[in-house]
């Protein structure tokens, strides 16, 4: 037992020496990025640009690969002067359109000499919401150019962001098909951009029919057909060709079933 005691003391001494050593190196704690809190009613362009700068340096993690000033070691193009360059990058795209596309569809155009490694900024892990993406666009426009600052649109995006609850740990596997369909409707499917449901009471979502009680007037087969071939039977009062026929490839068969189950449950 005496030997065991000595052994334990020796191990304790070595392990805590290492722990002590680690306390002597520069300490850093990495906290989750702070959510930007702005009042939509008093929003100014300067606030938007500042919010964009903060997002770019924290939650967006853009500086992991990009730099502000040109740096030969950076994995992505430098931001300095991008506001002036952006309008000339791709014919047919304005400066804000180009930057927005570069952020959300980064592989659509890759600057020569750089690898196509950037993940979409509006998808995890950065997972920026629409307001944050727009604020970063305005900040980047301010570097050598002028931010557009569409304040009305930005205010609405800010209100929409405030309505979204913090994303909890999803438990999709244990959800019912209708609940999973609701998550897809509000998330991947992007259906909430055009349709109102009890879970998406967004007054701006009036491009397509209100689906709040769609389950009581349409059966599952009709709903499925309308998602896969939206122009086959367009609801009266709505123009044809607005809803894109992309959902057969966008959603997996399981996800499609879940969305149909969700919409069928709305009665």
């Amino acid at each position: 037992m005496q030997v065991i005691g000595r052994l334990v003391l020796f191990v304790a001494a070595v392990t805590f020496f290492y722990a002590w050593f680690v306390t002597k190196i520069p300490q850093s704690e990495s906290l989750p990025p702070e959510e930007i809190k702005l009042d939509p009613e008093t929003l100014t362009c300067a606030q938007v640009v500042e919010a964009g700068r903060k997002t770019l340096t924290s939650k967006g993690q853009c500086l992991v690969c990009h730099s502000i000033e040109p740096d030969p070691k950076a994995r992505g193009p430098a931001f300095s002067g991008v506001g002036a360059r952006a309008a000339k990058r791709r014919p047919g795209l304005t400066a804000p359109e180009y930057i927005y596309q570069s952020m959300t569809q980064p592989q659509a155009f890759v600057v020569e000499g750089y690898p196509p490694i950037m993940p979409p900024a509006n998808k995890p892990p950065a997972d920026l919401n629409e307001f944050e993406v727009s604020a970063v666009v305005d900040y980047l426009l301010s570097l050598g150019g002028s931010p557009t600052c569409e304040l009305d649109r930005l205010k609405e995006l800010l209100r929409a962001a405030a309505r979204e609850a913090p994303k909890p740990a999803v438990d999709m596997a244990s959800l019912s098909p209708a609940d999973r369909g609701r998550e897809i409707f509000l998330g991947k499917g992007t259906c909430m951009a055009c349709h109102i449901t009890p879970h998406n009471p967004n007054p701006q979502a009036i491009v397509g029919p209100d689906l709040s009680k769609v389950g009581s007037r349409r059966d599952a087969d009709f709903i499925r057909k309308s998602i896969l071939d939206p122009n086959a039977d367009v609801t009266e009062g709505y123009p044809p060709g607005v809803m894109p026929p992309i959902f057969a490839s966008l959603l997996t068969p399981e996800e499609l079933n879940d969305v149909v189950a969700y919409l069928s449950s709305l009665r």
């Binding site: 722990a19 306390t23 520069p26 300490q27 704690e29 995890p124």
Partner: peptide, 18 residues
């Protein structure tokens, strides 16, 4: 799956060493 718990941060190096 985002970590939204109060422990969703990387502690200071000294803490992790301990």
């Amino acid at each position: 799956v985002k970590d939204t718990s109060s422990g969703a941060y990387l502690p200071a190096h000294g803490v992790s060493g301990m």
